[in-house]
Design a protein around this nucleic acid. Structure first.
Lengths: 338, 338
DNA sequence: TTCCCCCGTCGAAGCGCTTCGACGTCACGT
DNA sequence: ACGTGACGTCGAAGCGCTTCGACGGGGGAA
C-alpha cells in the first residue's frame, strides 16, 4: 500500500508537508504543491480513510436515517436520499444508510463510535422518540420534517401547512365553495407523522377562513381504491367542486375515477395536489400542484449540517420552512357560475 | 472520551485483554470477561470506528451502489437496499450509499481509501463499464444482476430468463396460444439492462418452444399509458388471450384498461406478472406472478460478500441464480375452448 | 517426575494520518 | 540596520485500537 510517506519521499518533502498540501491548512509554495501532486498522481496515492478519521477525529461521513414506515411514498424518500448523497459529496462527505430496524440504538451507535460526523433524520413524527437522543448526541443533526417541539434542533422542510393553505386558497380564488382533502393513508396520521398533520391543519384553517365547506379523507395509497374514494367523496359532498390530493399513488387513478363518474377535470371538478412536480406535470391531465422540493430540501439539509460542523453551530437557524410554490396546470378552473 | 485504556484500568486488566474480550480472538477467562463487560457498561464505552479501521484494516462498512437510472421501479430498488442494510447489520457491518453521480470514480474512491471493505453493486447492465474496475479492485464485490460476461465476478439474481419462461409455460399449459409481453420502458432495453433482456429471451424462447404466437412490447411505466397499450395489444394480436407484464407501475392500470375494453380477467384474458409478491397479491384482481425476491437476494448478496471477506474468496460460487417461484392467483384461467 | 503445550494475560509496536510547535528565510517598516 | 511577522517546511507526538510475541502457570502425556 502506498502511504503518505511514500509520497513525501518521492516529492522530496516531509509527510506533514504532503498533508498540508492536501488539506490546505497551511500555506505551501506552488512548486512544492506541484511536486506533491505529481508524486500523488504517479504513485496513485489515496489517503486511508480510517487513519484520517483517527488522526483528525472527522470521518467525513454523514448518517442518513430513513425509516421506511408503512404508507409513505417510497420514490419521494428516494429523491431525498439521492439529493442528500449528492450534496454530501459536494462537501467531500459520504453517506451511511440507516434504516428503521436499528432504531435509536443505531443512531447512538454510529454517533458514539465516531463512524459519522453528523446525522440527517427523515420521516419525523410529531412526538418522535428519537428527539431526546438527538438533542444529547455530541454530533450535530438536521431533521427533514418538523416535530411538535423543535426547539434545540435544526429542522427543515417544505411548509406543509402553508402548502395546504395554498391549495385551498387557489381553489377559493377560483370560486369553489365545497372542497375535500384526499390525504395519506390512515396509519400515517395514527403515527402522527408531522407533514401529513400539517397539511390537514393548513387545509382546514384556510377553508374555515374562506368560509368553505370542507372535509378530510385519509386514504390508502392503492390505485385500486380510487373509484371507491371518488364515489364516497361525491356521496358525502354532492356539491363538491374542489379536491386537494396529498397522496401520490392515488393522484392519477383518482382523476380517472372522477372522469369515469362523469365529472370532467377541470370542467366539473378542480384538482390540486401536493406532490413532486415531475409527477404533477407528467399526468394525462397535468395537475396544478404545490411541489415537494426534495432536491432543495436534501441539499439545504446538508448545508445546514456543514454549517453546524464547521461553524460550531452558531448562527445556524433552528427552523427552515420552505415556502410552497404552487404551479397552475390544467386541472383547475373557475367554478361554473351556477 | 472514554477509551479502551479506561476500560482496562477499571477492569484491572491490560488494554489488549479488553480488545480480546471484545473480539474473542483469544481465549479470555469467564471472570475477566465479565469484569470487562461490567466496566464497558459502567463507562458507556464505545470503540472508535476509525481507530479500529486503522489498526485492523477492516472498516466493517459495505458500499451499496444504487444507480437510479430512468425507467427502473424505485420501490423495488428500495427493497433491495433495505434488505442489504438489514443483512449487513446482522454481520456487524454498516452500509455506505453510493449513487450514480459518482460513477466509477466513486467506487474506486471508497475502495481505495479503505472506507469500505466490500461492495454490493445493483442495476447491472449487460456490458457494464464498471466490470473491469470491479475485477481489479482489491476488495470483493457482489453484483445483483448478471452482466453478459460474469466470469471472475460474483453475481446473484432472480433467474429472469426462467421467470419469463415460467410465465409463458403457465399460460401455455392453460391452453393459451397467443401471448404478449408488456415490458419495461424502452430506455431500459436501450441501456441493455440485464434483467429486462433476459425476461425477453425467456419469454420468446418458451413461446417458440411451445409454438405460441408472441410479441414483445417495451412500455413506459406511466399508468396513463395503460389504455393505449391495451388497445395496441388487441389491435396487433386480435386473438390475444395471455399477457405477461414485467412493469410494476403498469400492472394494475393495464388490467383496468383491459376490463374497460370489455375483456374480463381472467375470463377473456389471462395475465401474469413478474413483480414483488406484495404487489401482485394486493391488486383488485390478484395476479398470478413470479415473485422478485428482493429480501432474499439482498440477504444472500451480503452473505456471499461475508464469505468472500473471511473465506478469502475460495469456494464462493460465481453465479447464484434463484429459481423463479410462480404463484397462481386469480388472474389466470384456462382458455375458453373455442 | 519431567517435558510440552495450551490457556490466559501482558507489553509494545505499530496502523497511516494530522497537527502542533519550532525554525530558518525573506521582506518590510522604521 | 534591526526587529517583526508572515511564509514555508520539518520533526515528533499522538489519535485509539489491534495484534504479535512473550511469559507464567497448570494439566496431560510419557
Amino acid at each position: 500500500m502506498v502511504g503518505i510517506t511514500d509520497v513525501a519521499r518521492r516529492a522530496g518533502v516531509s509527510p506533514s508537508t504532503v498533508s498540508y498540501a492536501l488539506s490546505g491548512k497551511r500555506p505551501i509554495s506552488k512548486e512544492t504543491r506541484q511536486r506533491v501532486e505529481a508524486a500523488i498522481r504517479e504513485l496513485g496515492y489515496r489517503p486511508h480513510a480510517g487513519a484520517r478519521a483517527l488522526a483528525s477525529s472527522k470521518s467525513n461521513v454523514l448518517a442518513l436515517v430513513v425509516p421506511l414506515r408503512a404508507g409513505i411514498h417510497v420514490p419521494v424518500v428516494m429523491q431525498f436520499a439521492v439529493s442528500v448523497v449528492t450534496a454530501a459529496r459536494r462537501h467531500d462527505h459520504d453517506v451511511l444508510l440507516l434504516t428503521q430496524e436499528e432504531g435509536e440504538e443505531g443512531l447512538r451507535r454510529v454517533a458514539e463510535t465516531a463512524l459519522v460526523d453528523a446525522l440527517v433524520v427523515m420521516d419525523v413524527q410529531l412526538h418522535d422518540p428519537r428527539l431526546p437522543l438527538l438533542r444529547n448526541l455530541d454530533r450535530p443533526s438536521v431533521l427533514i420534517g418538523f416535530p411538535a417541539e423543535p426547539s434545540g434542533l435544526t429542522c427543515i422542510d417544505l411548509d406543509f401547512r402553508a402548502a395546504g393553505e395554498a391549495c385551498v386558497d387557489h381553489l377559493a380564488r377560483l370560486g369553489h365553495r365545497v372542497v375535500a382533502l384526499v390525504g395519506s393513508p390512515p396509519e400515517v396520521y395514527v403515527r402522527q407523522t408531522a407533514f401529513a398533520q400539517r397539511v390537514v391543519q393548513g387545509f382546514t384553517a384556510a377553508a374555515d377562513r374562506a368560509g368553505l365547506s370542507c372535509r378530510v379523507h385519509p386514504c390508502e395509497a392503492a390505485p385500486g381504491a380510487a373509484r371507491a374514494i371518488a364515489e364516497r367523496l361525491l356521496r358525502e359532498q354532492p356539491a363538491l367542486t374542489g379536491v386537494v390530493v396529498h397522496n401520490e399513488p392515488l393522484l392519477e387513478p383518482l382523476i380517472d375515477a372522477f372522469e369515469q363518474l362523469g365529472l370532467r377535470v377541470p370542467g366539473d371538478l378542480s384538482v390540486t395536489a401536493i406532490c413532486p412536480d415531475e409527477l404533477a406535470a407528467s399526468l394525462r391531465v397535468p395537475v396544478t400542484s404545490v411541489a415537494i422540493p426534495s432536491a432543495e430540501v436534501g441539499e439545504r439539509a446538508v448545508e445546514l449540517l456543514m454549517a453546524k460542523l464547521d461553524g460550531g453551530g452558531t448562527d445556524v437557524p433552528e427552523a427552515t420552512l420552505l415556502p410552497p410554490r404552487l404551479t397552475e396546470r390544467a386541472s383547475t378552473a373557475p367554478r361554473d357560475a351556477p
